[in-house]
């Protein structure tokens, strides 16, 4: 038991060091690019963008941490949050490896298998993307400059979010109706509403919709929270 405590504690120390090193490295990317280009963005615009995105990203970030930590284990979590693509790659990969090895999350064996699996997955992904970029970047660049493909590249966003949306709507179709209708109504009133503001509206509507649709799941919890407050 003492050993177990020691190992998890050590993983948290390693994870913390790597996490903040990654944060520093990440922040160096825009700094280096701005130095190379000799162009810095105006604080005003960055402020506007951060003010638009922060509530969205940061709330999602908190939800992700709370959701994924128990499933990924400590080492897996630190690696996953640095290398990204958690829900579509790291999480299923780690869970699959633990299942294959017949170990459970939150045990020391689970921690070892999950960490190895997610680290290997991160390396594989990094290598595939790097090789692909180096091998095919020129081919892609020539193709995308061609006039024939103009219609395709002008419609990247509808194609991307249509496909991405379909995979989510297939699982949770009831959640999609209210935010889409609401987004369309906002755009009928103000057609040039920026995607940041529009997203804020659709996310709020989507979450309220989810709580109402799955009321049997959420209401007891809300009742519990408000009940406790009343009792206090």
């Amino acid at each position: 038991m003492a050993d177990k405590k020691n190992y998890f504690d050590r993983v948290h120390i390693w994870g913390t060091v790597w996490n903040y090193a990654a944060l520093l490295m990440m922040m160096m990317v825009p700094v280096m690019m701005s130095i190379i280009l000799k162009t810095w963005p105006s604080l005003n615009i960055i402020g506007k963008v951060v003010a638009t995105l922060a509530p969205l990203y940061w709330v999602t970030g908190i939800i992700e941490v709370v959701t994924y930590v128990p499933m990924l284990g400590a080492g897996g979590t630190y690696l996953s949050f640095v290398t990204g693509n958690i829900s579509n790659l790291k999480l299923p990969c780690g869970l699959n490896a633990m299942e294959n090895a017949k170990v459970r999350p939150n045990t020391e064996e689970g921690e070892v298998i999950s960490t190895i699996s997610i680290a290997v997955s991160s390396l594989t992904t990094t290598i595939v993307i790097a090789v692909g970029v180096l091998a095919f970047a020129k081919v892609f660049s020539t193709a995308s400059d061609n006039q024939t493909f103009k219609a395709a590249f002008s419609n990247v966003l509808p194609a991307l979010f249509g496909a991405l949306g379909a995979s989510y709507f297939a699982k949770h179709w009831r959640l999609g109706i209210a935010p889409i209708i609401c987004g369309v109504i906002v755009l009928l009133i103000a057609p040039s509403t920026g995607v940041g503001i529009l997203m804020f509206v659709t996310i709020v509507v989507s979450i309220i919709g989810a709580v109402l649709i799955y009321h049997d799941l959420f209401f007891p919890l809300l009742k519990g929270i408000f009940g406790k407050k009343k009792n206090k």
Binding site: T60, T67, F161, H172, L198, M199, V201, V204, A210, L217
Partner: peptide, 27 residues
Amino acid sequence: AKMGDILSAAAFIGIISAFIARAINGC
């Protein structure tokens, strides 16, 4: 765990919906 899944999915669907709405009638 299920509530966490649903809230994450709802937040994500909210993002996707904004882009879908813009593909339908935005400028």
